[in-house]
Simulated assay, not measured.
Amino acid sequence: MAYTFQVTIDSPDPHPLADWWADALGWEVEPSDEPFIRGLIAAGHATEDDTTTHRGTLVWKAGAAIRHPEGLEGAPRILFQFVPEPKTVKNRVHLDVRTGDDDPQALVERLVAKGAKHLHEGRQGPSVWTTLADPQGNELCVSH
């Protein structure tokens, strides 16, 4: 049997990071179901402390997710999960963003302008890539 998966990234501030990554990838932030959240609070299954407000909308404090515009058929979901501690070491796993026919350098420049940090350029045989860190320090590579 083959399994599905989602990628989970720890974050001390998941909602802005989900926004950043959705913009970076051309994906969509999953919408909040405010009436559902309020119903769970009213029924005693959650509390106001489990929520926060992001961009004027009630959301779960525990995290935010993004998905490919074609849904889970396009790519696995990415969940940005709240953790209280900041990132302190290099990631053991990172995302490789492949630009296809788009210019990877144009994407690198756009992401740096939106808060990414340029870390280094890499090359192995004919493969070349740029390694960046997102606004919270998580590494990613951009290539064709």
Rank of each mutant, 00 (worst) to 15 (best):
P14F: 00
A46I: 06
W27P: 05
L40Q: 14
E48K: 03
E28N: 15
T4H: 09
G39K: 10
T88H: 06
G137T: 04
A65D: 13
E30G: 12
G44H: 05
W60V: 09
P126V: 12
L58R: 04
G26K: 07
A22T: 01
T130L: 08
V29R: 13
L17Y: 00
G122Q: 01
Y3I: 13
T130M: 09
D103T: 12
W20S: 03
V89I: 11
T53G: 00
C141W: 03
D101L: 12
H94E: 09
Q6K: 14
R67K: 11
S11K: 01
D19G: 10
A133K: 04
M1Y: 09
L132W: 02
G74Y: 10
R92L: 06
H15T: 02
K114D: 14
A2H: 10
D102G: 08
H144G: 14
S127M: 13
I37A: 05
G100A: 12
P104L: 12
Q6T: 13
G71P: 07
A116S: 06
G26V: 04
L72F: 11
N91C: 07
T53R: 12
A133Q: 09
S127D: 10
P14M: 08
F82Y: 15
R123Y: 00
V112I: 15
G56V: 08
D13Q: 07
T130P: 11
A43T: 09
A22P: 07
G74M: 10
